[in-house]
Write a protein that binds this DNA or RNA. Structure first.
Length: 663
DNA sequence: TGCCGGACCTTCTAGACAGCATGTC
DNA sequence: CTAGAAGGTCCGGCA
């Protein structure tokens, strides 16, 4: 099947031809046969890099009306915005929290790219363009299984489809265990495929020996440092059994060096941020830049990193980059992240050592992917990383047109080899499960349904949820009790009121506070905490910016910052000496630990507006530069929500405005 | 007395969405 | 209930 046979304008056909796209990939053909170009609802569960974006473009271009492309990450939204904007004759708009593109101007676009939260927010704020859509494409739908963000995805999609029954829905998913359930939910045709443009082989490494799933194998020389270690073991005797091979880090280093010697780039995934940095520094000694002959470009990338800031992290990154290596995790500022990402795409970096950020983020394909750690510290101690996640890491292997094939290597030892192979090489990815039943998620979406006027009774709320993945899987009835609880909670929180019209006949309406809470896109618990905080602050004789920060940092919408043992006493003392400026009685909070963390965050933010530098704060409070940035960003948002809430309850706290303007 | 090595203890752990008005190029 | 790596501390042995 050829591109020019599709119902596309000749300029669009030319556009694709210029990029070498003339023939459809098998999964793309299957999507066309399923009717993406004819307005049919389609779910495509295919690997990353198998041409999902093209399927999205087909749907959007042939929809005969405005289209919406929903994706989970702002960085992804920008990436897609650029590829769509390159299409001839297509007006594209972007709408994410960090990107200016105001309300009604989106109505004129052929395609709008947005995050799911932004779409949800647009609906809550009554944006008109969402009702005029002819087509919605949801990228990474499997994320509806995500704890916090999954529910908003499914409720948003359900609402969109309910308000616009003719809406064409195209959902793109990673390969998961139950794509049929998703297709069934959307009444869509299912296209399933594990075809990839570049062959991918996955293997398990024990010592320097890798056994791939296609029967091939590979041996790399692992540094001799571990030989000595093995001698030591013998002396100790039975203490350690000889099954313990060389160190996983050494194996990883050898695998990276091997790929680079062959002219290929590598991605190495590890468990924690610090280990990503450690690995990168360890690899910096290998002279990878020389092996790839990229010294000059690597030095240029290092200079770019240096220009971002003078943080310790920035200096470490620059040093690594100079040696042709980089690390990547969420503690990096976005400036550093994009330096690393673009340097890698330009082949100016041989290897990135990363936490899972990179697995789900922007496109950074490599010749070889090494997954050093398959277990990670989680809620229940050491947990196996979900198969889906590991597959997404592995899926980054293989650059179309550049690599003969992609290789994914899972580093194990003799003890774990079988388990790793079974779980990740043979094993199926997990099924996607709805998280809507979570009480917190339900509260916010029940409030949104009431505040927007879509529902005025519990029955109508259930109607809204009827189109949800949860309802299709479990039956909407399963939600009835939980919704009743959510309504009670919201009434108790002063977000929703029952307007009685008869004995059993009452209507649910959002209170003024409930309405602005929903429109400001904060969770009900956050709105409640802010309202209480504002009232308390108004009663304080000396409310300062610290007061404002304490209130917004004590909400579930502010991420908490780690409070080390050594710091605890210090923060406690800080809280005591500043108790006149805090809205919380120190003997009161039932979650004292959590509150102390909030105080720490508030203190950081207060010093930030007081003129402290990133370098200083990062060092003194042991947080990543990127963590500081994201907290500042959130504080701006929450302070504006606090201002709006203050206005609706008629309580003015000047310190809030002061804090906000100084941010 | 001073240095070094090792047993033992302590610390720490992935990621990232949202509002809005005003100023600036 | 379940881990494991890195860094710090303290003690003992040795020159």
């Amino acid at each position: 099947m050829r591109v020019r046979d599709l119902p596309l304008s000749s300029s669009v056909v030319d556009h694709f031809a210029e990029r070498g796209v003339r023939e459809l990939y098998p999964p793309q053909r299957a999507a066309v046969e399923a009717g993406v170009c004819g307005g049919a609802d389609v779910v495509a569960a295919v690997p990353t890099a198998s041409g999902k974006t093209f399927v999205a473009q087909l749907a959007l271009l042939t929809a005969g009306g405005p289209g919406l492309y929903v994706c989970p990450l702002r960085a992804l939204a920008r990436e897609k915005y650029e590829t769509f904007a390159a299409l001839p004759g297509v007006d594209v708009g972007i709408s994410t929290g960090d990107f200016d593109a105001t309300g009604e101007e989106l109505a004129g676009n052929d395609v709008v790219v947005a995050t799911s939260e932004k779409v949800d927010s647009a609906i809550r704020n009554g944006a008109s363009w969402v009702d005029e859509l002819a087509c919605v494409v949801v990228d990474e739908v499997h994320l509806l299984g995500a704890k916090r963000r999954g529910p908003t995805l499914e409720v948003t999609l359900a609402t969109l489809r309910r308000r616009n029954p003719d809406l064409q829905t195209v959902a793109l998913s990673a390969t998961v265990d139950n794509p049929d359930a998703i297709a069934d939910w959307l009444d869509a045709a299912l296209v399933e495929s594990d075809w990839r443009p570049v062959e991918l082989r996955t293997g398990v490494a024990v010592g320097g020996d890798v056994a791939f799933d296609d029967g091939t194998s590979l041996s790399v020389d692992v540094a001799s440092a571990d030989e000595a270690a093995r001698d030591d073991d013998e002396e100790v005797g039975v203490e350690k059994n000889e099954a313990d091979g060389p160190d996983a880090t050494e194996v990883t280093a050898a695998l990276v060096a091997d790929a680079v010697a062959d002219g290929g780039q590598c991605l190495a995934f590890v468990r924690s941020r610090r280990e990503a940095v450690d690995l990168a520094e360890r690899l910096a000694d290998e002279g990878l830049a020389e092996k790839l002959g990229i010294e000059d470009a690597a030095a240029a990338a290092a200079d770019e990193a240096t220009d971002v800031d003078g943080t310790l992290t920035g200096r470490q990154l620059a040093d690594c980059l100079r040696a042709g290596v980089a690390f990547h995790h969420a503690g990096l500022r976005s400036g550093h992240r994009s330096v690393v990402e673009s340097a890698f795409r330009d082949r100016d970096v041989a290897c990135i050592c990363a936490t899972p950020t990179l697995a789900a983020g922007v496109n950074v394909p490599a010749r070889r992917v090494v997954v050093r750690d398959q277990r990670r510290y989680g809620e229940a101690g050491m947990e196996w990383i979900p198969t889906l996640e590991v597959h997404q890491m592995c899926g980054r292997a293989g650059r179309p047109g550049l690599d003969p094939h992609g290789e994914a290597v899972l580093v194990a030892d003799a003890d774990t080899r079988a388990a790793v192979h079974e779980r990740y090489v043979e094993g199926e990815p997990e099924a996607v499960e709805s998280q809507l039943a979570d009480p917190g998620a339900l509260r916010t979406h029940v409030l949104a349904a009431v505040a927007t006027g879509f529902a005025a009774t519990e029955t109508e709320i259930l109607d809204v949820f009827e189109g949800t993945f949860y309802a299709r899987e479990t039956g909407a009835g399963g939600l009835a009790d939980a919704v009743a609880v959510a309504v009670d909670d919201l009434v108790a929180a002063g977000m929703v009121a029952r307007e009685t019209g008869g004995v059993e006949d009452y209507r649910l309406v959002a209170t003024a506070v409930g309405e602005t809470t929903s429109k400001q896109y904060v969770r009900p618990e956050t709105g409640e905490r802010i309202v209480a905080g504002l009232r308390a602050a108004a009663g304080l004789s000396d409310a300062t910016t610290l007061t404002a920060f304490e209130v917004i940092c004590d909400t579930p919408d502010m991420q908490d910052t780690y409070l080390g043992n050594a710091e605890r006493a210090d923060v406690y003392r800080f809280a005591r000496t500043n108790s006149a400026h805090l809205t919380t009685d120190m003997t009161e909070p039932d979650d004292f630990e959590g509150w102390l963390e909030s105080v720490k965050t508030a203190r950081i933010l207060d010093e930030w507006i007081g003129g402290a530098t990133v370098e200083d704060l990062v060092e003194r409070y042991r947080i990543g530069p990127g963590d500081l940035d994201s907290r500042v960003e959130r504080a701006e948002w929450l302070l504006s929500a606090a201002e709006a809430l203050g206005e609706t309850i008629g309580v003015r706290v000047p310190a809030v405005s002061r804090a906000r303007s100084r941010l």
